[in-house]
């Protein structure tokens, strides 16, 4: 009984994680400019792979795997915003433009 419950939970985590990865990929193809694409990749993508790592921990069900999976999860969650921020800063500094629909760009005003 408990075995089925764990299998169900693992399956749920896997499917939700894969779903978030798919959403991030769809966002990557549909969104109009670099900055909005970064939103999709850094949030949905991270959550997707993090959930799948947690699924491994739940499936294995021993302490050392759980600890390593948690360490990996924290690592991904902490590094994703840093890389997104660095990329956004580099792209903006080098003058890659925002999409035409953008309503304002106060950083641009500040630089000039």
């Amino acid at each position: 009984m408990i075995e089925v419950l764990i299998a169900l939970l693992t399956a749920l985590l896997i499917l939700v994680g894969a779903g978030f990865a798919l959403v991030a990929a769809v966002g990557l193809t549909r969104l109009p400019d670099v900055y909005t694409r970064m939103h999709a990749a850094s949030k949905a993508g991270t959550v997707g792979s993090g959930l799948m790592l947690l699924a491994v921990a739940l499936h294995a069900g021993d302490l050392s795997t759980l600890a390593r999976a948690l360490a990996g999860f924290f690592f991904f969650v902490l590094t994703a915003p840093i890389s997104a921020h660095l990329l956004a800063m580099a792209a903006h500094k080098m003058g890659y433009p925002l999409h035409e629909k953008s309503v304002r760009d106060e950083l641009n005003d500040y630089r000039n």
Binding site: D33, Y35, T36, H92, L98, H99, S102, R104, E106, Y110
Partner: peptide
Amino acid sequence: RMELKPGIFA
């Protein structure tokens, strides 16, 4: 229908 109003604010 994606309705985006992206922008950078201070």
